[in-house]
Design a protein around this nucleic acid. Structure first.
Lengths: 156, 156
DNA sequence: TCTTTAATGGATGTCAATGTCCATAATAGA
DNA sequence: TCTATTATGGACATTGACATCCATTAAAGA
C-alpha cells in the first residue's frame, strides 16, 4: 500500500535522524544506502526529493553528504511521506458525477476516512518519537547504532 | 494509495448490492461498466476475481451476468478489497534483519499500525451500511437508482 | 438444432514506478 | 591549481498495473 519510495525515504530519514542534530557530519549516499539496504542510485533520487522538500540538506564534494535540516522533534512521518509520494485524499467523486458538488458518496467517504486515518497517524508521529521508542528487543532495524563490532568512522 | 482495481471492484460491488438480494436479475458486465464508468474489458477481469473469491456469482449466455453472492449485511468492504488487492500488513522487518525475530522496529510498527487502521475501518463497514447511509444530497454516486428520467428496465 | 448473448481466456499494448549507469558539476583538501 | 570525493542530471532498462482486443466457451430461447 505504501510505495517503495516512501519506504526508502523513511529509512533514510530515520538513519539521518539518528545522528546528533546540527552537529553531525554529513552522511554520504553510499553510507546511507548500505545501512538502509536501499539501491544506491535510486536512493540518490529519493534523497534529492527530500532535499528539494527542505527536509534534509545536501553538500557536494569531499566529506559531503546529507544532514537532517529539521529537529527530529519537529519532523513528522507525514512530511517525509508527502515529500516523495503525497497521500492523495479523495476530494471529489472519482466518477466525476455532477449531481453532487464536492460532497462524497458514502463509498468514497469511507475510503477517504481510511486515508484520513493514515494521514492522522503519520502526522502524529515525529522522528524523535520513533528514535526514542522504548522498544526493548528491537533497536531500530539496526539503524541508529548497532555495528557488528567496528567503530563508526572506519573507512577501510 | 488504493489501486484502481480496488476502486473498480468496490464500484461494481456497490452497484450489484443495490439490486434486491437473491431476486435480482443478473447484471451484465456492460451494464455495470457503463454505470460505474469503468473500462468494460478491464472490469471483466475484476469481476472474474470477485467471482473466484466467491463474492459474486456469474452466469453466461443470454440474460446472463453477475449477481451478489452474499447478503450485503454480511459483506464488508475489506472482503472486496482483499479479493482483488489484499492489504499487505507488515509482518517482519522489510530489511530482513535477523537481529530481531518477528518484532518490528518502531518505524515499521507505526507503518503497520496505519495499515491496521485501514484494515479495521474496512472490516467494520458492510455494503448494507453504505447503501443505507442517510447521505442527503449524495445518493451513491448515482448508483442504486438515480436515472436521469427513464424507467429502470428500458433496453432501447 | 441454430442463433444470439454474454462470460472467459489469452495475447498484446501502454505507462508510470522502480532501478541502473554514466557524464557533469561542485566542494574539500593538498 | 590539481585531485579526489560526492551530489546532480540525464539517458536508459525493467517490471507490474492498467487497459484493449479477439477468439472461445457456455447458456438461453426460438
Amino acid at each position: 500500500m505504501f510505495s517503495q519510495t516512501v519506504e526508502y525515504a523513511l529509512r533514510a530519514i530515520v538513519f539521518l535522524a539518528g545522528k546528533p542534530f546540527e552537529s553531525a557530519l554529513p552522511q554520504n549516499s553510499e553510507q546511507i544506502a548500505t545501512t538502509t539496504k536501499v539501491p544506491h542510485a535510486y536512493l540518490s533520487k529519493v534523497l534529492k526529493q527530500l532535499t528539494e522538500a527542505g527536509l534534509i540538506h545536501s553538500r557536494r564534494g569531499a566529506n559531503g553528504g546529507f544532514v537532517l535540516a529539521r529537529d527530529p522533534n519537529e519532523l513528522t512521518i507525514l512530511e517525509v511521506v508527502n515529500a516523495v509520494d503525497p497521500i492523495q485524499r479523495i476530494k471529489k467523486c472519482p466518477l466525476g458525477l455532477s449531481s453532487h458538488g464536492i460532497r462524497l458518496c458514502p463509498l468514497h467517504l469511507r475510503m477517504d476516512q481510511a486515508l484520513a486515518s493514515v494521514e492522522h497517524a503519520f502526522a502524529a508521529t515525529t522522528l524523535a518519537e520513533i528514535l526514542a521508542d522504548p522498544n526493548p528487543s528491537i533497536p531500530l532495524c539496526n539503524f541508529p547504532e548497532k555495528p557488528t563490532s567496528k567503530t563508526t568512522r572506519s573507512k577501510k
